[in-house]
C-alpha cells in the first residue's frame, strides 16, 4: 500500500497549499447541497402520517447529529496519530474540528428538544441516548477548554489528544444506546447499510442535507486548520513567502 499521502500530511506547508485549493470548493458545494436538501425537506417532502409537519426537523436534526459523532470519531483518530506518530497536523486538526463538532452537538440537542416537546410531550428526559449525546457535547467543551487553558502548546496538544482518544468510547454508547436500554428516543431512521424506514421522497432530501453538511463542515474545518497552521508556523520561511505573495 502506498503511504505517501499519509507522510505528506506531516508537512504543514503541503497541507496549506492543498487546502487552499479545496476548502473553498468544499464549502460552496456543501452549502448548495445543504440548501437543496433543507428546502426540499422543509417545503416539498410529504408530511408524516402521524407527526404531521413537525417531523421535518429530521432534515436538520439527523445530519447535525451524524456530524457531531463523525467529528468526534475523526478527532479520536487524529488523537491516536498525534500520540503515536506525533504528526504536527494532528493537534491542529483536533483543535479546528472540536469547535465544529461542538456546534453540531449543540444544534442536535436543541433541535431534538424542540421536536421532543410536541412529539413526546417533554423537552428533555434523562434517557440513555439524550444523556450520552449531552456527554459528547461536554467532551467537546472539555477539549476546547483544555486547549485554551494550557499555555504550554506541546502539553496542551498532548492532553487534548488523550481526551479525544478516550472520549471515542462514548460513540458506540451513543449509537447502541437505543438498542441496549429502554429509551424514549426511537432507533435510527437513516441507515446506509439497510433499507431506510421511510419512502424515497422523504429519504432523498435527508441524503442531500447530510452529504451537504459533511462537505460544508470539512471545508470549514480546513479553513480553520489553515489559520491554525499559519499561527503555529509563523516563523517558517514558506509562511513569510505565502504572506508576501498575497501582497501584504
Amino acid at each position: 500500500m502506498n503511504w505517501t499521502w499519509f507522510h505528506k500530511l506531516g508537512s504543514p506547508k503541503w497541507f496549506y497549499q492543498w487546502a487552499s485549493k479545496w476548502a473553498g470548493k468544499l464549502v460552496w458545494i456543501g452549502l448548495l447541497l445543504l440548501l437543496i436538501g433543507v428546502v426540499w425537506g422543509l417545503a416539498f417532502a410529504p408530511a408524516d402520517y402521524q407527526q404531521g409537519n413537525s417531523f421535518r426537523i429530521i432534515y436538520i436534526h439527523v445530519p447535525v447529529a451524524m456530524l457531531a459523532q463523525s467529528c468526534y470519531l475523526a478527532m479520536g483518530i487524529a488523537g491516536f496519530v498525534a500520540l503515536v506518530w506525533q504528526m504536527k497536523l494532528a493537534p491542529v486538526f483536533i483543535k479546528s474540528v472540536a469547535v465544529v463538532g461542538a456546534v453540531m452537538a449543540f444544534i442536535a440537542l436543541l433541535s431534538g428538544a424542540i421536536w421532543g416537546k410536541p412529539t413526546w410531550g417533554t423537552w428533555w428526559v434523562w434517557d440513555a441516548r439524550l444523556t450520552s449525546v449531552l456527554v459528547l457535547f461536554l467532551l467537546y467543551m472539555g477539549v476546547i477548554a483544555i486547549q485554551n487553558a494550557l499555555d504550554d502548546q506541546v502539553f496542551a496538544d498532548k492532553a487534548v489528544a488523550v481526551v479525544s482518544l478516550v472520549g471515542v468510547i462514548n460513540l458506540p454508547i451513543i449509537k447502541y444506546s437505543v438498542e441496549w436500554w429502554n429509551t424514549l428516543h426511537q432507533p435510527a431512521t437513516f441507515r446506509l447499510t439497510e433499507k431506510p424506514s421511510m419512502p424515497m421522497e422523504m429519504w432523498l432530501p435527508l441524503l442531500f442535507s447530510a452529504l451537504g453538511l459533511y462537505l460544508f463542515s470539512a471545508g470549514i474545518a480546513m479553513w480553520r486548520m489553515q489559520t491554525e497552521v499559519l499561527k503555529r508556523e509563523r516563523k517558517a520561511n514558506w509562511v513569510k513567502q505565502e504572506v508576501m505573495s498575497d501582497g501584504i
Binding site: 410529504p46 408530511a47 408524516d48 402520517y49 402521524q50 407527526q51 417531523f55 429530521i58 412529539t119 413526546w120 410531550g121 417533554t122 428526559v125 424514549l184 426511537q186 432507533p187 435510527a188 431512521t189 424506514s197 421511510m198 419512502p199 421522497e201 422523504m202
Partner: peptide, 11 residues
C-alpha cells in the same frame, strides 16, 4: 409521554 418509532410515511 408518547414514544415515537423510526418509521415515517406520507399520509
Amino acid at each position: 409521554l408518547a414514544k415515537h418509532d423510526e418509521e415515517y410515511m406520507p399520509p
